[in-house]
Design a protein around this nucleic acid. Structure first.
Length: 549
RNA sequence: GCGCCUGUAGCUCAAUCGGAUAGAGCAACGGAUUUCUAAUCCGUAGGUUGCAGGUUCGAUUCCUGCCAGGCGCGCCA
């Protein structure tokens, strides 16, 4: 039993409460705190009085040194030596599994990124991919069997436009696509008659015309390859690519229409489109209809998306979506519910804005993710050059991409962010700061030259800096639990930043290699445990560490 | 117009389902290196948590109204 559990056990016995909510008190007031407000009504006393009463009833044990009333709070002081021994031994034993919970394997499908194959991704798209990759890594860390899916929107008006724009071009590369896409959008805006050609292309495609299919496939392949290469560079990988067009070729979209027909909610409107009536689904919209086909019976995205989600078949799945999809997702969910099918748990994020306004691939007002990566890489190379003779490109990438990932994941997903080139920092609350703490520990480990010994005198770890680190380390599992509950990366980001900061303090004030043998061994163990936990946290964010910086 | 999200220090962001004195970083200023890596550390300064009410022992957090930004509201995806 750890001290936290023992405190909860004692409190439950004394108070008869079913749930005990412990807090971490401000510095110096103890290790755990129990706020007594909840008991004020049942005991008909002031929380201040209750705290005092309870303090007298807490029995000191091996783990709990004392309980002290401070205003309406009951603060607990625990035996730090036992905590240190408990937590450090656990970290050494569990290594890169430390912090994860033990449980039976459960399959979860996570769909993320899924961007239109029309051009190189802009930085806003990175938010989807990074958030999705974080969720994948977090759940894998927790022992889930995760399958990562990428839905390739290889069909539809946008792609048809691109195909049209590429009509008279000889050889097209990934880098040509963005300009091609912008130009065809401009062209169609100026001469709307051209739009007809786009719909003709789609009609031919859906009829299965092989030549048209090939034209689409060629463009989509170039695009998807280029996009995936960029994400691959960021170490974001996918287990399966699901092509939207497959749902047409397998006639699954037709099946969906048939199924919907049985519900009596599907009708053909005055313009001969198939429309799903969603009036009974309690959706916050004026006219709750989901249009599934065009008048020429070619499919619209919601129809193909429905077929895709029915096909996912997993009992549990998660999907990362931009906030523009919020209402649409409610519609999709309602349609799935109507068919008796499960829907995924959505995770939404807000858009990245530019100082010059909103981002738009169509209008070419955007910052490309690859340009941001290049900029970060160049900065990383310069920083390394200032410190070392030769630049290891692998290291430069770790730093650059670590900084990018950290800066994007740092912001809570539902907030808008305004992109700025100046935002890329390597100092302070950044990825490189955490990596630097790890590199410092690695450096000490190299100079120590001996194996880490866990048979140490734990009572030697008693400075504020050491206690702070031990306290933080013992909180890691809670942090993981909390971030799994919310699927938000900020919780882990804050934690590892605090831990790295705590280590920097410790590093300045508590010399390791110069300490006496016993203390040296103890601090060495502590430092290597800090490194382990930092690495565990970073690995969930997809950030790598370095031997030297 | 209606619905959802956001608004915290000059800037970028935190704040673990309502808790103790709202915390960091950047920028500014002042300090620390004969020392395990200065991508570091310490200090100073910086706040009516958009505004106005309300709920309660207690509100950045919950409710109402207003203001500002984002997103959405039938043949884009």
């Amino acid at each position: 039993m750890n001290p936290r559990e023992e405190i909860i056990k004692q409190l439950k016995k004394i108070t008869n409460l079913k749930e005990i909510n412990l807090e971490i008190p401000p510095e110096g007031l103890g290790d755990y705190a129990f706020p007594c407000f909840v008991l004020a009504k049942t005991f008909k006393k002031s929380p201040i009085q209750i705290a005092q009463d309870l303090a007298g009833k807490i029995k000191p044990t091996k783990l709990i040194e004392k309980a002290e009333a401070k205003g309406p709070y009951l603060n607990f002081f625990v035996n730090k030596t036992i905590i240190a021994e408990d937590i450090l031994r656990k970290i050494i034993k569990e290594k890169n599994k430390f912090g994860s919970r033990k449980h039976k394997k459960e399959k979860i499908l996570v769909e993320h990124t899924s961007i239109n194959p029309n051009a190189s991704p802009h930085i806003g798209r990175a938010r989807n991919a990074l958030l999705g990759d974080f969720i994948v890594r977090l759940l894998r860390f927790q022992g889930y069997d995760i399958e990562t899916h990428y839905f390739v929107n290889d069909i539809g008006k946008q792609i048809a436009m691109l195909v049209l724009g590429a009509e008279d071009k000889q050889k097209i590369t990934f880098n040509d696509l963005l300009n091609l896409y912008i130009k065809i959008n401009e062209k169609i805006e100026k001469t709307p008659e051209l739009e007809q050609k786009v719909f003709e292309l789609l009609k031919k495609l859906e009829e299965g015309d092989e030549k048209t299919k090939k034209r689409f496939r060629d463009i989509v392949d170039i695009c998807v390859k280029g996009q995936v290469k960029i994400f691959r560079e960021l170490d974001i990988k996918y287990d399966k690519f699901d092509y939207e067009s497959d749902y047409l070729w397998t006639k699954k979209t037709v099946q969906v229409l048939k199924e919907l027909e049985k519900t009596g909610k599907l009708f053909m409107d005055e313009e001969e489109r198939y429309v799903l009536d969603q009036k009974d689904s309690n959706l916050p919209m004026e006219s709750p209809f989901l249009v599934l086909t065009r008048a020429d019976k070619t499919s619209l995205y919601p129809l193909r998306d429905l077929a895709y989600h029915i096909d996912k078949k997993k009992s549990k799945s998660i999907i990362v979506l931009g906030e523009d999809q919020k209402l649409y997702f409610q519609q999709l969910k309602a349609a799935l519910t109507l068919l008796g099918k499960p829907s995924p748990q959505p995770v939404f994020y807000s858009f990245v804005l530019l100082e010059t306004g909103k981002m738009s691939t169509r209008k070419g007002n955007l910052v490309l993710l690859e340009d941001f990566m290049k900029e970060a890489l160049q900065k990383a190379r310069e920083e390394i050059k200032q410190r070392h003779n030769n630049i290891d490109d692998k290291d430069a990438k770790k730093i650059a991409y670590g900084a990018i990932k950290y800066s994007i994941l740092k912001v809570t997903p539902e907030r808008n962010v305004t992109f700025s080139w100046k935002a890329l920092q390597f100092e302070g609350d950044t990825g490189p700061y955490i990596q630097y703490a790890c590199a410092r520990i690695n450096s000490i480990l190299r100079k120590y030259e001996k194996e880490i010994d866990e048979k140490i005198d734990f009572s030697l770890l008693k400075t504020d800096e050491e206690n702070n680190l031990i306290k933080l380390l013992s909180n890691f599992s809670e942090i993981i639990k909390e971030s799994q509950r919310t699927l938000k990366p900020t919780i882990i980001i804050n934690y590892i930043y605090n831990l790295a900061q705590g280590f920097s303090n410790f590093y300045i004030k508590c010399p390791i290699l110069k300490a006496d043998e016993g203390l040296q061994k103890a601090r060495m163990l502590l430092a290597s445990c800090v490194k382990q936990v930092l690495e565990n946290g970073l690995s969930i964010l997809g950030i790598e560490t370095l031997e030297k910086m």
